[in-house]
Design a protein around this nucleic acid. Structure first.
Length: 605
DNA sequence: GCCGTTTTCGGCCCGACTGTTTTCAGTCG
């Protein structure tokens, strides 16, 4: 029987919500919201829903109540859900794929598939596109030329589905736009917000906010941005453009005296804002990007007021986010935490973590120099001396050199040992000659491949010529969870092996990464003092934030390192710090915040 | 259909923009 992953289950639940939306909007109003929330919850879950179900923990997941639980139970037992099939009954299956097209929602999808007789679910988007090109959409009642054009644009965007932007790249794009905006005399302040400010590893749209007393002038100016391809929308306080590189930029504007609420609103996340508004409502306050208004429960909203027409008091404005949160009896929450994963409760109870900071970092333990060790994969480009100088400039106390192991297919065990001996002598010499003059300590480490069977890619005796070793996977990524977990644990088993490098093997936008039994890995690391790497390389950012959070919860220690192959890349440490912060890591959770002596006690014992 | 430091019943976030309508529905974040 088919095994459903979280994405597929979320999609199924969203289809049910869409079906309810089409069938009877008022009767199903709250079921729709419940199914959408359940879908969100499933999509954001840190473990596979199927595993939670196996372990009898599915009922604990937020948004899953008795009804949806029993439907999912049926899904896992039989592969289908009777109630869902009844719900879909009478609706064209072709409509559901159309929902992925931006601008098309349930009602539009239903109407279009029905009237245009689109009956092939797998080709529905293409069929709709063909119909639109022949002008068949504009003649449908409720549609016109412009909506037809908008749908065609949406389809183009869907079919050419651009991948999410790496945080590193998104920051560059945003900073160019902010530089441009700040040249306008009416712009008091401009900030990157949204997932960019929350430092998500990848970013969908670029969100920018501006404080100004002249919104119209600023929007006009924004719409003339030289890298603009076309204007997507333009209003009194918001605007959106598409850049020539196909990226989407949203702008939101407020006067300086109300800018705090705007920052808060536009930073999100959506889930954080929803939870925050629920909390606020219980305190009698209604939140928006303009500020807060008192609302009084129990007052008759008057007849004929279906929704959100409760009488509200005078608007309270906030110049800063800090004041905004304080009004709710909360501490200011670092943007990296704003995902509705417990930060609102922690803030209310004044128990927010004191997150690790860039300035806490005292060294980099994953650097590839150009020292030749006849390795099979990418060697560094910078010399050990250049690297040492850069580390001193960064204010580090220590670094570790971690070239890849010598290729094991092209060398005999003895040859590998000889290379390691020679390398040890070289670094011993470097340690004594350089560190006498420079305030820095050097560790002689190595990044060793873990072979598919769990053996190290150097003879075990070779470990004697290292201060400590880090291990990582660079081949056979397709082993199943059980085999891969065994492989890793076997490699970590050597006393000299201290660090597990880029633990999931993911490459953002390119490779998913392999699956591991994280409970086992965490337990093993905790019991044996092994360290998990948070690789700051912008395409890796691995461990991912949600696993960092699990590790923190369990007390497993981590190290943030850059995996640099050129000295410039040593400056990318901040991207690893962002991941650590998103995972709620404090200074105590990250070993390279320790002094040389303290970290030596961990790594050299 | 879910959920509970005001509730096991009675609530459920908030507002922007667009296109098409002539007062609003649909979609988005």
């Amino acid at each position: 029987m088919k095994v459903f992953n979280n994405k597929e289950i979320a999609e199924l639940l969203r289809s049910v919500a869409a079906a309810y939306t089409v069938k009877d909007e008022t009767k199903f109003k709250f079921q729709i919201i419940a199914y959408q929330r359940a879908a969100d919850s499933v999509e954001h879950a840190s473990s596979e829903i199927k595993d939670l179900w196996d372990e009898n923990k599915l009922k604990d997941l937020a948004g899953i109540g008795p009804a949806i639980f029993s439907h999912l139970d049926e899904l896992f037992k039989t592969g289908k859900v009777k109630h869902f099939e009844q719900t879909f009954n009478g609706l064209p299956l072709s409509m559901f794929r159309l929902l992925k097209v931006p601008g098309i929602g349930p009602k539009t999808a239903y109407k279009l598939t029905k009237i245009l007789k689109i009956n092939n679910p797998k080709k529905s988007v293409e069929l709709l596109q063909a119909a639109g090109k022949k002008g068949k959409i504009r003649v449908i009642e409720g549609f016109g030329e412009e909506s037809e054009a908008k749908i065609l644009k949406g389809i183009e965007e869907f079919l050419g589905r651009k991948e999410r932007i790496l945080l590193y790249h998104a920051q560059e794009i945003a900073s160019d736009i902010i530089d441009y905006l700040e040249k306008n005399p009416f712009v008091v302040r401009a900030d990157p917000l949204g997932s960019l400010r929350r430092k998500c590893s990848t970013v969908g749209d670029i969100d920018i906010s501006v404080a100004t007393k002249k919104p119209k002038e600023v929007i006009d100016y924004f719409l003339k941005y030289p890298q603009k391809q076309r204007v997507l929308e333009s209003g009194k306080t918001t605007a959106a453009i598409l850049l020539k590189n196909e990226h989407h930029v949203d702008l939101m504007i407020q006067p300086p005296k109300a800018y705090g609420a705007l920052l808060q609103h536009f930073t999100g996340s959506k889930h954080h804002n929803i939870k925050l508004r629920e909390v606020a409502l219980k305190k009698g306050l209604s939140l928006s990007e303009y500020g807060m208004r008192p609302v009084h429960k129990g007052e008759d909203p008057g007849k004929g007021t279906e929704k959100n027409v409760r009488p509200k008091g005078k608007l309270i404005e906030f110049s800063s986010e800090k004041k905004f949160y304080e009004k709710l009896g909360m501490e200011w929450i670092p943007p990296e935490l704003r995902e509705d994963v417990g930060e609102i409760e922690a803030s209310l109870n004044h128990k927010l973590p004191i997150l690790v900071n860039q300035k806490d970092i005292k060294g980099d333990l994953h650097i590839h120099s150009n020292f030749s060790i006849e390795t099979s994969h990418d060697t560094g480009m910078s010399s050990p001396d250049e690297i040492i100088q850069k580390a001193v400039n960064l204010g580090y106390e220590y670094i570790a050199f971690t070239e890849h192991n010598p290729s094991y297919n092209n060398h005999s065990p003895k040859q590998i040992i000889d290379l390691l001996k020679r390398r040890k002598l070289y670094f011993e010499h470097l340690k004594y000659s350089r560190t006498l003059k420079l305030p820095i300590n050097i560790f002689n480490s190595l990044e060793i491949d873990i072979k598919p069977n769990g053996e190290l890619a150097i003879p075990v005796d070779g470990l004697d010529y290292l201060d400590f070793a880090m291990v990582s996977v660079h081949s056979s990524f397709d082993l199943d969870k059980v085999k891969m977990t065994k492989r890793i644990l076997s490699a970590l088993n050597h006393p000299k092996v201290k660090i597990f490098g880029h633990p999931t093997g993911r490459i953002l936008n390119k490779r998913e990464g392999y699956e591991l039994d994280w409970d086992q890995i965490f337990d093993y690391c905790l019991r044996n003092g092994k360290i998990l790497e948070i690789c700051a390389w912008p395409e890796r950012l691995d461990l991912p934030d949600f696993l960092v959070k699990e590790a923190v919860k369990k007390g497993v220690k981590m190290v943030i390192s850059t995996d640099s192959h050129v000295v410039e890349q040593m400056g990318l440490m901040s991207f690893g710090v962002f991941v650590a912060r998103r995972g709620w890591a404090e200074k105590k959770d990250i070993i390279n915040t320790l002094s040389t002596k303290e970290i030596s006690d961990i790594l050299l014992k």
